[in-house]
Design a binder for these strands. Sequence first.
DNA 1: ATGACTGCAAAAGATTTGCATGTAG
DNA 2: CTACATGCAAATCTTTTGCAGTCAT
Lengths: 127, 127
Amino acid sequence: MALKFSKQREAIRKTLEGRTDHPTADMIYAEMRKEFPRISLGTVYRNLILLSDLGEIQRLKVGDGVDHFDPNTDEHYHLICEKCGAVSDIMLHLDLDSLAQEQSDGIIHGHKAYFYGLCKKCAEKAD
Amino acid sequence: MALKFSKQREAIRKTLEGRTDHPTADMIYAEMRKEFPRISLGTVYRNLILLSDLGEIQRLKVGDGVDHFDPNTDEHYHLICEKCGAVSDIMLHLDLDSLAQEQSDGIIHGHKAYFYGLCKKCAEKAD
DNA sequence: ATGACTGCAAAAGATTTGCATGTAG
DNA sequence: CTACATGCAAATCTTTTGCAGTCAT
């Protein structure tokens, strides 16, 4: 199935570009509707899934019941704020593969991992 | 709201006891039905949620679209097998709190984190 | 032309909830 | 008695899918 150009897909790609706020499909849908009032949520999902299958974006299942999307495909981890639900990037220098093999509990790979705690903002408020 | 005894809840607690296979609500429901043919999925969910609110079990959102439950409330991490979907316990000696603060990206706490890779079984098969 | 893409609406799957009834204290 | 718990079914919510029409190549 040879990929064909679609302005909807390009717009989705562009909306996501450079963002670090990890929007959900619904947020992207809302933004798309400004430019394409008739776009459907199904199209948004289909394109997000397609782009993540192509490896151009990441689809994150952070456990809040909604998928988040990340244009950054570099190795990095995610922190989910237990207070406000924000998903933020964290850079950890972990050699997880060796750590896990040490334990012989299995093999961690792909540098995909979710951590939970407080995001920068909520940690500062400290209430 | 003072907690009252319920044989269904006790049975659910008991079914979960000592297990390390992280069953889903549906699996627990299926097992409960052997003993209580008329139990409802709603009751299973309500009790699992209640028990996790009480801190007696853990409710895991591993990202496969289904919640898993873990009677082990000790500090430990989970590895989700990207091949077979199995959720297994992994013991890592990580000082995540300091690691995250080092980066000042936020504060990781609670020792709750999900890692992805291959479980012991799938790693051995190595195909 | 042909096959990919779209909008729309319906379907699917997991979890939650309302309500009438049952039961522990 | 009276609240909490249950079974049942309906509602919710997110994501997926079927289909007929549209558009890129």
